[in-house]
Simulated scan of single mutants.
Amino acid sequence: MTSAFTDPVKFEPPPDHTQLPESDGTFVKNFQEHPQSILLTASIWSTLERLHPEAQFCIGQDSGIYWRITEPPERGAEAPDWFYVPNVPPTLNGEVRRSYVLWQEHIAPLIVLEFVSGNGSEERDKTPWKGKFWIYEQVIRPAFYGIYEVKQASVEVYHFIENHYELLPANERGHYALPQMGVELGIWQGQYRNLDLPWLRWWDDQGNLLLTGEERTEQEHLRAEQEHLRAEQEHLRAEQESQRAEHLAAQLRALGIEPEV
């Protein structure tokens, strides 16, 4: 006769990131979302490397955060447009992450960002177990949740305080401070790649815009050009002074006066 001790019940372990879908098959909403994600990542990367000298962090762009086991699996995931998780390895068991699985990781993202393509109702939906806002606030619980609307040139940032989200006020620069990262988040009007738009961008806590590698290279190139132009102007000015001195000396000699050296 078998018993619970001789014939134990076998439980299947919960799926990990290699067993869950890495995409729900939906399209990216518009052509601005991809460069916006790249801009956020490229400009914050050096800051995150300073914060994490051992490279223990990860960034997700349209990547799934699995928060519950469902069928189909995609129904138990949210895929923020951009998110950052501190103090986790960039790979798992030597494999590149396919998704971020909360029951496997246990560490919530520090910040989650959603880019609005419609009227923003999806990103602000507080319907229990379905709405994005509810899932982020009640289950995933990132410290900061940002809703960026390029059409409105605006961003709302919510801070998780005492088990709920409170709208974070902007500072005197119109930015939102994230002290854990030592940065501010806000809107920057300008051209990135070939699009002139109000972009979502990072600043340091002194209000200096964080640049991408391309922007830093371009800045250095412009600075070098300015230095070259300044040197040419100084050279031209020296030549003009020399010519004036020679002309004056010639006039003095014509009057029978030997100019002093």
Rank of each mutant, 00 (worst) to 15 (best):
M1Q: 06
T2I: 11
A4G: 07
D7M: 06
P8Y: 00
F11E: 02
E12C: 12
E12H: 09
P14C: 10
P15T: 06
D16S: 15
T18S: 15
Q19F: 11
L20G: 11
S23P: 10
G25H: 09
F27Y: 09
V28K: 01
N30Q: 05
F31T: 07
E33Y: 01
Q36H: 04
Q36M: 12
T41L: 15
I44G: 03
S46L: 15
L48R: 02
L51I: 01
E54H: 14
G60Q: 06
D62H: 11
D62L: 06
D62C: 05
S63W: 01
G64I: 02
I65E: 05
R68C: 13
R68G: 03
P73E: 12
E78S: 07
D81Y: 04
W82R: 01
F83D: 04
F83K: 02
Y84H: 10
Y84T: 02
P86R: 14
P90K: 05
P90Q: 10
V96C: 05
V96M: 08
R97Y: 14
R97D: 07
Y100S: 09
V101M: 08
W103V: 00
Q104L: 06
H106L: 04
I107R: 15
A108H: 09
L110R: 05
L110N: 00
L110H: 03
E114T: 02
F115T: 00
V116Y: 08
V116A: 13
S117R: 13
G118H: 06
G118C: 08
G120A: 13
E122M: 05
E122P: 02
E123F: 14
E123R: 09
D125Y: 08
K126Y: 10
T127I: 05
W129V: 00
K130C: 09
W134K: 13
W134M: 13
E137D: 08
E137H: 03
Q138E: 13
V139M: 03
F144A: 06
F144T: 01
Y145D: 03
Y148L: 03
E149C: 04
V157L: 11
F160W: 06
H164D: 08
E166V: 07
A170M: 08
N171S: 12
E172A: 14
Y176N: 04
P179C: 10
Q180N: 02
M181W: 14
G182Q: 05
W188A: 02
G190Y: 07
N194D: 10
N194T: 09
P198V: 01
W199S: 12
R201A: 14
W202Q: 02
D204C: 00
L210I: 00
L210E: 00
L210G: 01
L211N: 00
T212L: 06
G213K: 02
E215V: 12
A224T: 02
Q226D: 06
L229Y: 11
A231V: 01
E234P: 05
L236D: 07
R237S: 05
S242K: 13
S242R: 15
S242P: 00
Q243C: 04
Q243N: 09
R244A: 12
A245E: 13
L248C: 14
A249F: 11
L252Q: 15
L255A: 14
I257A: 11
I257N: 09
E258Q: 15
E260L: 13
V261N: 14
